[in-house]
Amino acid sequence: MFRRLSDRKESSVSFTFNGVPTMASQGDSVAAALLAAGHCSTRRTPVSGAARGPYCMMGVCFECLVKIDGRPNRQGCMTTVVTGMRVETQDGAAMPGQEE
C-alpha cells in the first residue's frame, strides 16, 4: 500500500518481522518499514482483538505498538530500524513477565 519514491537512495537495512527477514531503508521508523513491506495491520487490540495498524506516525495514537527485540509496547513510529532488529506483532495485551 506504500511504495518508495525512485529518487530516494538510502542504503538498506535488514530486520525481521515475526521471524521473516524484511528490508527497510536507512532512517525508516519501524512503522514506516512495516508499511513499506506491505503490512498495514500490525497488532490486535487487547479489548476485542480487532486488527489495527499505524495511524498517526508521530507518537500520539499508540496504534503501532509492537514488540521490539523482546520488549513489548514499543511505539513503532518512534523507533528507528537498525540491522538485525527483531520486530514482532503484539496480539492483545502484553502481559508482565513476557519481557525477555
Partner: peptide, 11 residues
Amino acid sequence: ILVKSSGLVPS
C-alpha cells in the same frame, strides 16, 4: 510524515 522521512507514498 511517510513522504518526508522515508520517501514513501501510497501505491
